[in-house]
Amino acid sequence: MVPVVIKIKKAVVSYREDVALRGVSLEVKAGELIGIIGPNGAGKTTLLTLVNGLGHLLQGEVWVLGHNLARGCPAALRSKIGYVPQLPAIDPRMPVTAREVVMMGRYGRLGFFRRPGPGDWQVVDRMLELVGMTALAGRPIGHLSGGEQQRVAIARALAQEPSILLLDEPTASLDRRAQQQILQLVQRIHQERKLTTLMVTHSLAGLTELCDRLVLMKKGRIWKTGNPEELLQDRVLEQLF
């Protein structure tokens, strides 16, 4: 029997006067790739941040890899969860290279006072190769295109050697070609590594082949969940959006 690695029970999250999640419950089994879709403000990003402990749980329960997050999310647990946030605006003159950004994924595992060793750099170079960024590894991160920065962010999350991968709109603000490349990369990573993956996306193309399951969110609630073929129907999407 496949173990459940994420268990969310009646989770409520509130920011200021807005209730972002209203009693959300979800179970995710090891190795599943789940697509999360829904209109803006549905609570999709909040659901991801609940899993890696960056969101503030008001009520309910969240269990991740056997840890109850109501008691806080220890740094050691965070280092097992690779998180790719929405593409941030990066200063083009930021004095950090793509290779150094990927190495940052190792920092949580290394802990204080330990410097990256040759083994860590090997992991970093392997991840850069996996996402097709070896040739641009020495370039300043701010000089890369949006699609390239997104690949670096995915490599950084993978360099953590995570048990869970969280992707928040990895194809947002990218052109069609870059979107396809990123989705193919996510699919390849999932096939090769069988990583439990939660991906928030607005890009519906290719989700049928990519995802094991879809979660449709609306107004802070999980509206429907199930098979992508059944849910990616015009009549369902019209009601969702």
């Binding site: 960056l54 965070r78 280092s79 946030p85 920092y107």
Partner: peptide, 23 residues
């Protein structure tokens, strides 16, 4: 010198640094 790697991550992106397990 001691916390260079943590400082580098925080300077780059504070939320990302938090997500990888850095205080």
């Amino acid at each position: 010198v001691m916390f260079f790697k943590e400082i580098q991550a925080v300077i780059f992106h504070r939320e990302m640094a938090r997500a990888v397990g850095i205080p």
